[in-house]
Design a protein around this nucleic acid. Structure first.
Lengths: 106, 106
DNA sequence: CTTATTAATCGTAAAACTACGATTAATATA
DNA sequence: TATATTAATCGTAGTTTTACGATTAATAAG
């Protein structure tokens, strides 16, 4: 390198990791994974954060592609976006399953 | 919730994700995974960043526990910390393998 | 139609992250 | 011993993240 770029795996993986890099966002995903019905404003009640802050975290997860939302009357229903979710899973699984070699030092 | 905390899985997972949340740090890990000999100052040459910035990223990875360094004369040799690496792998694998349910909306 | 509820967005402050050059400490070499 | 090399740390900008309350837009209920 010393050229100004990173490989696409590194970029994509870092972007997914960034989406997971806050306990609130991980908690939101845990909720969506657990509940059989997609929760909505209930997410706010389940987190120790204000409505506007939760909304921001939801936006980040949405922009990362990991969740999607659907308007249902006055409320909004969020779900895991399975397609992107599986892409992220595969990418991370591939990364972590790289055989760590027996190295000379450490 | 609405009490001031997150579950420990969310906290731990977010911390690992944060360590992976920058392409430079992912690139460093890719290098350490690929090379059979632990690279050292070579990491700096492989990244489009200054020595001090790379050092900072190495520090973050070290603090997350994902890598460890060993002084070898005038240079330092970095490796994946396999124990913590495997913990992170297991945590992420468990998280992503949570069965995504057939949900009502979205 | 008016009022209430829900959730996104705006504005903003504080904290954290990212990057760099300069400096420092340690070891190696001449 | 003097000089070079390596890598951590310091100081410091600029940017991004995180959080909140206030406001807004949309729908539902009275």
């Amino acid at each position: 390198m010393k050229s100004p770029e990173y490989n696409s795996t590194a970029i994509t993986l870092a972007a997914f990791a960034k989406a997971l890099a806050h306990p609130a966002r991980v908690s939101i995903l845990q909720l969506l994974l657990k509940k059989k019905s997609c929760i909505c404003g209930n997410i706010v009640d389940e987190l120790p954060l204000s409505q506007s802050t939760v909304s921001q975290h939801l936006k980040e997860l949405k922009e990362a592609g990991l969740i999607k939302g659907e308007i249902d009357g006055v409320s909004v229903c969020y779900c895991i976006n399975e397609k992107v979710w599986n892409q992220a899973a595969a990418l991370l699984q591939g990364f972590f399953s790289t055989s760590t070699q027996q190295n000379s030092c450490c």
